[in-house]
């Protein structure tokens, strides 16, 4: 697959580990080539592994049409925050070095099957996809950009929630991004939310739940409060499928579960109904 670049360190004389991927969910050994051909979806258990924002973009956007937007926005350290593991500044720098990104979301526009769209794609590798100043700003700017052009807006969420290291300002990004979504609604600009593994906390409780339609990848973890916190509060065991995409579908909070390989086609079909007429 062209969209996927090998990230593994190649050593001469491929060892066993280079040939096989272990499914994080069912622990099955999958031949690496097959794993990649399946877009990092386990052929044994249908687990949809987390992928990077650029991998996801390349799966969805027509080749050569992507233009990054608001790409200049990057983290600052408003609280000069430091915890047991050191300063936030260092953590953010490490995340940037590791991912090559400047924030936890990639934003821009391009064509999806020929239809111009604006898109925000979160990346869990960047500090757990956490929602902070830069994330909120990029999503808001891109929503406003979409509004100006009347382009449908699509957000792929992947986030553990608000970024604690920026304190209250991170919490405020929930209101900021939702206000931007409200403006899209006013202008009748389509907004589609795709929830991927995981979408929890402040992201689930803001823009991720507010799509005209909400869709999810199979078995994605989606919920507001953490499982352990809930178990400690209510002192009872939670069902196995609790806070999965399937659980949310059953409870009426998402419209459909869409496999990774079908995602582009599905979005394209939906967008036909949201065309300006």
């Amino acid at each position: 697959m062209a969209w996927f670049r090998k990230s593994g360190k190649k050593t001469p004389g491929a060892s066993e580990e280079d040939l096989w991927t272990v499914c994080p969910s069912c622990k099955a050994h999958i031949y690496k080539q097959e794993w990649e051909a399946e877009l990092k979806v386990c052929p044994k258990c249908n687990y949809h592994a987390r992928i990077s924002c650029t991998e996801r973009r390349d799966l969805l956007i027509d080749a050569g049409t992507w233009r990054e937007y608001a790409g200049h926005v990057t983290t600052s350290d408003p609280l000069v925050f430091s915890d047991a593991k050191g300063p936030y500044k260092e953590k953010a720098a490490a995340a940037k070095a590791k991912t090559g990104l400047k924030e936890s979301v990639l934003t821009g526009d391009g064509k999806l099957g020929g239809i111009p769209v604006s898109m925000a794609i979160m990346d869990f590798r960047f500090l757990g996809g956490s929602l902070a100043s830069g994330t909120g700003e990029k999503i808001t700017l891109t929503a406003e950009h979409a509004a100006r052009h009347r382009w449908p807006f699509i957000i792929f969420s992947a986030s553990g929630g608000a970024r604690m290291h920026e304190g209250i300002i991170s919490l405020m990004q929930m209101a900021k991004t939702c206000a931007a979504i409200a403006r899209l609604n006013e202008l009748k600009v389509p907004y589609i939310s795709v929830l991927t593994d995981p979408t929890t906390g402040g992201v689930s409780a803001s823009f991720a739940m507010m799509g005209d339609i909400n869709i999810a990848e199979p078995r994605a973890l989606i919920g507001f409060a953490g499982r352990r916190v809930i178990e400690e509060t209510i002192k009872q065991k939670l069902p196995d499928d609790f806070q999965t995409a399937e659980y949310l579908l059953e409870h009426g909070f998402i419209d459909h579960i869409v496999s990774r390989k079908d995602m582009k086609e599905y979005l394209h079909r939906v967008l036909q109904y949201g065309k300006r007429r």
Binding site: M174, A175, C178, A179, I181, A182, N185, S204, A205, S206, F207, A208, M209, M210, I222, G223, F224, A225, G226, V229, I230, T233, I234, Q236, L238, F242, Q243, H251, G252, F253
Partner: peptide, 22 residues
């Protein structure tokens, strides 16, 4: 943070308020 609260959409309820209050 409870089972019923999640089942009835704690996240959706808060998200909707943020959107509609604006």
């Amino acid at each position: 943070p409870g089972l019923e609260a999640e089942a009835r959409g704690q996240a959706e309820a808060i998200a909707r308020n943020l959107t509609e209050m604006s």
